[in-house]
Computed example of a mutant assay.
Amino acid sequence: MTLLMMDLDNTLIDRDAAFRIGAAEFLAAHGLPAEDVDWVMSVDASGHVTRSVVSQAIIDRYDAGLDQDEVIAFLRRGAREHAHVTAETEAALRQTRAAGNQVVIVTNGAVPQQTGKITASGLDKLVDGWVVSEGVASRKPEPGIFHAAAETVGASLDGAWMIGDRDDADILGAHLLGLQSVWLHLGRNWTQSDYKPTYIADSVAEAIIHAGG
């Protein structure tokens, strides 16, 4: 039995695609230019920019009397409600768990938002558990969140894998603990010189199957 720890955003779910739909809905709801969705995406930077900064940038761009709390809530709702898992990823998750492996989601972020994505996408029925950084007071790449993930399912980190798209969170976290890792490259080249993933995958399904043996 192998423990597979998996990132959520832009790994198990296409967070950027979900956010893009939400951003387009937001622009339409406020009568703002539909073509500005690309600008919103650039400001959002795959969710790595804080919601307060993104919302303020939107408010500053338009003279539309927008309320910051409303903007933040709308953008979060879009990323959450439009989250989904591909059929290929679902099949790989079912296959690896049927083989006796355990899958735990390890994600940075706020508990309500990340848990909302997990349930909206149906991942709550496809994994054995999950940990969110806000809930365990530890963020990737810190060791604490990975230990919490293992404890969630009563597993050991011995022989465990971490799968994700972030070099500075997912792969670095695995490196710091001496764990095996799979990096989802998403069309990018690996650039870090101090550490590297055990394996580089083209797709989430490939990553799951590789780590699950």
Rank of each mutant, 00 (worst) to 15 (best):
H48A: 08
H48P: 05
V49G: 08
V49S: 04
T50Q: 00
T50N: 01
R51T: 15
S55C: 01
S55A: 14
A57F: 05
I58Q: 11
I59H: 08
I59V: 14
I59N: 09
D60Y: 00
R61F: 06
R61Y: 05
R61N: 12
Y62V: 03
Y62K: 09
D63S: 09
D63K: 02
A64S: 01
A64H: 00
G65T: 02
G65D: 06
G65K: 04
G65S: 03
L66D: 04
D67C: 10
D67W: 08
D67F: 11
Q68P: 07
E70D: 14
E70S: 08
V71P: 06
V71Q: 04
I72G: 04
A73M: 03
A73E: 13
A73V: 07
F74K: 01
F74E: 07
L75E: 10
L75R: 09
R76I: 15
G78K: 03
G78I: 15
G78Q: 06
A79Q: 07
A79I: 06
A79N: 09
R80H: 02
E81S: 10
H82K: 07
H82A: 08
H82T: 13
H82F: 12
A83H: 12
A83T: 10
A83V: 11
H84V: 15
V85S: 08
A87D: 15
T89K: 08
E90G: 11
A91L: 09
A91K: 10
A91T: 15
A92K: 13
L93W: 07
L93M: 04
R94I: 12
R94G: 13
R97C: 12
R97Q: 14
A98D: 13
A99F: 04
G100M: 12
Q102L: 12
V103L: 05
V103D: 06
V104W: 00
I105N: 01
V106D: 02
T107W: 03
G109R: 03
G109A: 06
G109S: 06
A110D: 01
A110R: 01
A110S: 02
V111W: 05
V111E: 13
P112M: 02
T115H: 04
T115P: 01
G116V: 07
K117C: 06
I118T: 10
I118Y: 02
S121I: 12
S121Q: 07
L123V: 15
L126M: 11
V127K: 00
D128S: 13
